[in-house]
């Protein structure tokens, strides 16, 4: 491995890194918003809407992100719907993540035993009080581990963005391997930047999970 080559590649990789991280986190925010919305629709059994949400979740949980991105980026323009690569990346990741987040949040909401609802109502709480001070706080802690796992999964999925010609880390690495054939250096930097991107999230995730478990079960 040649340190001079490494040094000259770092700026290119950091630029790609920032792009990947930016689109990745925008996608994750979209997925969280979508997940919360869809989980509420499922929890409150809103007719029609909850059927649509079920179809959406099944459709996106059972197809790969790569195929979804190809469909949005290359398939839709044939019908006249044209979106830029960056928006497409964030949107695709958000749609994929939304379906996973929906499942995690919904299972958190449904894990609260029915007796809590009954007890709260018999104590004279209103429906909105029941939801905001009994169900939501508990469901939040139950869904946290699932949400963290999804965040890590989604950050990893950002690696397929290069397929829709976004200049992300994978694109850079493949480009440099093709141009200069410095395979070892490119791959090394690729791994380093992915570790920088994911290790803090993974570590922070385990810490938060432990804290949550402590709050819930006290062990």
């Amino acid at each position: 491995m040649d340190p001079d080559i490494l040094r000259s590649y770092i700026p290119m990789f950091s630029e790609a890194f920032l792009l990947t991280v930016r689109i990745g986190w925008i996608g994750i925010l979209i997925s969280l918003a979508l997940g919360i919305l869809c989980a509420f629709i499922l929890y409150f059994r809103i007719p029609a809407a909850s059927f649509l949400v079920k179809c959406y979740v099944e459709l996106f949980r059972n197809t790969p992100l790569l195929v979804q991105l190809f469909f949005i980026y290359y398939g839709l323009p044939a019908l006249g719907i044209r979106i830029s690569a960056e928006v497409c990346g964030a949107l695709g990741l958000g749609l994929l993540g939304g379906s996973y987040m929906t499942e995690s949040i919904r299972s958190g909401l449904e894990a609260i035993p029915y007796i809590h609802t009954e007890s709260a109502l018999s104590l004279g709480m209103s429906r909105s009080q029941l939801f905001s001070s009994v169900i939501l706080p508990q469901a939040f802690y139950i869904s946290i581990p699932g949400i963290i796992a999804n965040v890590i999964f989604l950050l990893k999925e950002t690696s397929v963005f290069s397929a829709i010609s976004l200049m992300d880390l994978m694109f850079r690495a493949k480009d440099l391997i093709g141009l200069y054939y410095n395979t070892t250096e490119s791959l090394f930097l690729l791994v380093v930047f992915y570790v920088i991107m994911l290790l803090p999230v993974s570590v922070a995730g385990s810490v938060i999970e432990k804290k949550v478990r402590y709050r819930m079960f006290g062990d």
């Binding site: 990893k156 999925e157 690696s159 994978m170 992915y194 570790v195 994911l198 290790l199």
Partner: peptide, 11 residues
């Protein structure tokens, strides 16, 4: 857990 499968494929 933290390495994307595509990165492993490239390696």
């Amino acid at each position: 857990r933290i390495m994307p499968q595509l990165v492993l494929l490239f390696i």
